[in-house]
Simulated scan of single mutants.
Amino acid sequence: MIDKKQPEMNLFAFVCSNEKPLELYFFIDPLCPDCFALEPVIKKLQFQYGHYFSLTYVLSGNISNLNHVNRKLIRSRQPKKYEKTVTRSHINCNDIEAKVNLSSPYIASIAVKAAELQGKRAGIRFLKKLQEYIYLKNENISKLEILIQCAKESSLDVDEFKKDIHSTSTSHAFQCDLKITNEMAVTETPTIVFFNNKIEEEGLKLSGVNTYEVYIEVMAEILGELPVSHPLPPLLTFIQYNQFVSTRDIAFTYNLPHLQVETEMKKLLLQQQVERIHTSYGTFWKYIG
């Protein structure tokens, strides 16, 4: 049920603060539809269990994804058994010799790393805007002008973004992500690797799109106890934080039937808080309030 009386909360401070018992590495490819399909699960985990973990995006890229961007999103799969991976202390990126390469299909991932140089929050905003352009607007994000437009709409310093996307610092950051991907033996996206706050201990790796309960199960195994959930935020706060969400995302997050979600969203539509967008992936709602 959506709690309309619950006070506003600083969601970014809640989900991105430090000093938490768990750290999650989220391996994604911006062109991977399954990564986009997993976003509702990630959002709900952050809102309900964000006080337990910090989330780090690790960018990857796969040529095969260029031919699959337009296929339907996969919403569920059979859960995969998680496996152990290396410790974080074994990963060192100091030996990487950065080489600037803006060739497709990696330009989207490199652009996200360029945005991250303006801060973690900026990087997340840019990634969400990039996904909006790919899946809602069907834009070709291998074009530099489209990436610059995403930077503008993400409230980035566009001049800095233009410099950074061609810089060795950005190239080094992306190549470091690729090294982490290799060191942790990540062979597909999306993949999430769970670590506790003891850097010398191995992490647990979970690949593919799994049910919400599976991710909580992995967290519980590492913590040694079942995590306690935090109340979900008010609906408008949820939409404002995410900027655009689908009817399906809202229904999943709040455990509501689609008809009830449509009713609530039509109220916000009349209040000119949101804009409705029809796509091949379903109905999306964009915050404009």
Rank of each mutant, 00 (worst) to 15 (best):
K129A: 09
S103W: 08
H90C: 11
E97I: 13
T85G: 02
V112K: 06
L144G: 12
K143Y: 15
K128H: 11
D95E: 13
S142Y: 06
Q131S: 11
S89C: 08
E97Y: 07
R88Y: 04
A151C: 12
I134T: 02
E145Y: 00
L147F: 12
I134G: 00
S155R: 10
T85P: 00
T87F: 05
K99V: 15
L117Y: 05
A98Q: 02
E153Q: 09
N92W: 04
S103I: 09
D95H: 13
K84L: 15
N101R: 11
K113C: 11
I134Q: 03
V112Y: 07
S109K: 04
I124H: 01
V112N: 06
N92M: 07
K128W: 07
N94R: 09
H90Y: 10
E116L: 12
S103T: 09
E97C: 06
K143D: 12
P105I: 15
K128D: 08
N140Y: 00
L147Q: 03
G123Q: 08
E139Q: 13
Y135H: 07
C93I: 03
K152P: 09
I134P: 01
A108V: 02
N101S: 14
A122C: 12
L144M: 15
K99D: 09
N94S: 14
L147P: 03
R121T: 11
D95S: 14
A115Q: 01
E145M: 02
A98C: 06
S154V: 15
D95W: 06
C150I: 13
L117G: 05
L136A: 11
C93P: 01
K128S: 09
I148Q: 11
K113Q: 14
G123M: 08
N92K: 09
N94I: 10
S154H: 08
N101A: 10
A114N: 06
A115Y: 00
E153K: 06
R121V: 12
L117I: 08
Y106C: 04
N140H: 02
E116A: 10
I148C: 07
C93D: 03
V86H: 11
Q131R: 14
S142I: 07
K129H: 08
K152F: 04
V86T: 15
K113G: 05
N92V: 12
A114R: 06
L136G: 08
T87W: 02
I148M: 09
